[in-house]
Amino acid sequence: METVTDKEEIEEIENRIALYSDYIEDKPEIVKKANQLKSDKERMKLLYKTHCTNIRSFKYYIRKTDGQGHFIDTPIYTAPNGEQYIFPKQNWFNNDEIITLIAVLLFAALVYFMIQAARKGKRLYIRPIAGIQEIDNAIGRATEMGRPILFVPGLSGISDVATLAGLAILSKVAKKAAEYDTRILVPCRDFIVLPIAQEIVKEAHYEAGRPDTYDKNSVFFITQAQFAFVAGVNGIMIREKTATNFYMGMFWAESLLMTETGSATGAIQIAGTDAVNQLPFFITTCDYTLIGEELYAASAYLSKQPLILGTLKAQDYMKLLIVVTVVLGTILSTVHLTFFMNWFPAK
């Protein structure tokens, strides 16, 4: 190391040392504390923790306004210990959700009891739904005509429950189609739905004892673009002359474009969707339509297992409970008793 001998230079360095020590003195408490720590990692940890605390600390005051631009402020709240900054405490339960929790528990209990009842052999009545009963006939028709079946599992992704319901129906339809040795075409718009649909159709063929007839190319991806997908599906209907078309899942503005083409080609069409807005289009152009919850119920109807029938019955009771709550709430609010309404948080 070189030793500085020049007087001026020494003076400059001393000045600088003085400047930096002043700076260190002036530093916030936390930096000094951090400097005393040994390792870099510990220092960063302390600083980060303080940073996180600081950005989440707030001062509070109340502003009252008449909605016309006039307002009055209270002084900033000071805690008994003189502290103005308040740091929120983490909760373990979100009190706004208490009604949701009660409803969830109630529903789960209902499902449990209904499944138990069904297992014990209690006969549960469920309303017959024409659209579901016709599924078998529709597949049979395609078989007789020797033409393929088209199954569109909706345009939404896998996180949409309607898509899952559509896929559940696909597994039943594909199995029947495999038994009758009828080709089934499944165009997909979502690439995560694609492998799942492929797997479902493949398994359905295995289950029906016809693994040889499974064609991987019959379940395919077209495009993510909404209307280009429709163009693709319509093309398939016209070229392949599908005898039966199923639309099960989530549909949007494109629904009428597909079903009108299907009706023009003379196919039997069964649709099921929970997209309320598309129901009028499906009802006018399809032979049978599963409305809203019927889509979710369809796989239960088709499998006729007590487990699944139990959940269906539980749904009915839960719906009754909700309707009673709604009616009660309406009556109470009409006579200005709002306590009941206030139990339910608005979101």
């Binding site: 429950v161 899952l164 479902i200 493949k202 398994e203 295995y206 289950e207 979710y296 699944i308 959940t311």
Partner: peptide
């Protein structure tokens, strides 16, 4: 309700056709 019930069925493994087979 249908969505909740379907989700519940999937979670509890009652409805498993999405797994294929």
């Amino acid at each position: 309700l249908g969505m909740t019930a379907t989700s519940l069925k999937i979670m509890l493994g009652i409805e498993r056709s999405y797994l294929g087979g």
